[in-house]
Amino acid sequence: MKFSLTASLVIYNNDPGTLVNTLTSFLSTTLSGHLILIDNSEKPTAKDLITDQRCHYFFNNANVGFGAAHNIGMKRILGEAKYHLILNPDVTFEPGALEKLYEYMEHNPDIGLLLPRVSDFQGEPKFLCKRLPAPLDLLVRRFGSKFLQAIFQKRLMRYEMRDKDYSRPFEAPYLSGCFMFFRVEALKKVGLFDERFFMYMEDVDLSRRVHQHFKTVYYPEVQIRHGHARESYRFNGLLFAHIKSAIRYFNKWGWFFDVERREVNRHL
C-alpha cells in the first residue's frame, strides 16, 4: 500500500478559512497520507486552496449529498491505505492525533471504526456516541418541548450514552460522521455509505453495519474540535432532508420491531 492513511473531505460552499484549518490539521501528520477533497459547490472556488501534493481536488459540479460524495472519493483512493478517515470541513486537531489513532487501531485489529473525544471550539464536550435510535428518540430530541424533553430526559441521556464514562474507551454502535476513522477492511466487508441518504442518518447506517462485524469504539485519548453547527435546526430545507433520511433509515432497519436495535442497545 502506498500510504498509512487516506481521507476524504466533502464541502459545499464552506468558509475557506475554516476549511484551511481542517486541511492544515490533516497535513500536520507524520503519517504518509493522501486526502481527496470532493467539492459539491456550484463553483470550484476551493480549488485554489489545494496546494499540497498530498491533497487532490475533485469538483463534482453537483450537490449529490454527503454520503454519495464521500463514496466518489473513497472509490478513487480506498485501496491505497489500511485506514481511511471521513473528515468534516469544520474539524481541527493537534499534531500527533492521527498517529495515536493509527497506533491504537494497529494494536486492536478487532476495531473497525474509531471516534475520538469531541469538543466544540470553546472546549465544551460533545456527546456524539449514541445507541441505535428508535423513532421516539429522534422525535423528542428534535421536536419535543422542554417539558416533553424533561419527561424523557432519562431516555435521551441513555440514547446519548451519558450513562457511560466518557473518560474511558467504550463501544458504541453509532459514532458521529464528523470524524470516522475506519479500518479499510471493514469498509470492504460492509460497503460504503448508503446513497439513499442524501444527508443525515448515513453515519448511523454505516456505523451500524460496521458494528455488526467489528467493534466500533470511542477513544478519548485523542481529542478533536468540531464546529457542530446543527444546521437542520436553523434551515428548513435541511430539516426536511433530516426527516426524509430518518424515514428512510427506519424503513430500512425497522420502526418499532427492530430486533437488532433492541439487542445491541441492551448489550451496551
Rank of each mutant, 00 (worst) to 15 (best):
E231I: 15
K47R: 15
P16M: 08
D163V: 00
A229E: 13
R155F: 03
A172C: 09
W255G: 10
T51K: 13
R117Y: 15
S28K: 06
S41T: 07
G79W: 03
G96I: 04
S232M: 14
R54F: 00
R225N: 14
L27W: 08
V64W: 10
S8R: 07
T29P: 02
F93S: 06
T45D: 13
E263Q: 12
V64E: 14
V264P: 09
R183Y: 02
P169G: 03
M1E: 07
W253K: 09
S8Y: 05
K189D: 14
L238R: 08
S28E: 05
E103P: 05
R142F: 09
R208G: 04
I77F: 08
L206H: 05
V64M: 15
N265H: 03
A7Y: 02
Y57P: 15
G79M: 01
G65P: 01
D258K: 07
H228I: 11
T6M: 07
N13R: 05
Y174D: 01
E221V: 08
L138I: 12
C129M: 10
Y57L: 04
L98F: 08
S25H: 08
F170A: 08
R196V: 03
C178V: 11
L187S: 00
M1D: 07
D163Q: 00
F198C: 07
E202K: 14
A68I: 06
D258L: 10
A62H: 04
F235S: 10
L85S: 02
C129L: 04
K130E: 06
R209Q: 10
L156Y: 06
L239K: 14
R131L: 09
S41F: 10
S245C: 14
I72C: 07
K146Q: 08
V20P: 11
C55P: 02
E160V: 00
A62P: 00
G112F: 03
L85W: 00
F198E: 01
L49D: 01
L132E: 03
A7F: 01
S232P: 09
G112W: 01
A68T: 07
R208Y: 03
L115T: 07
I243L: 12
Q212E: 14
Y233F: 15
F256K: 13
Y57M: 11
F121T: 00
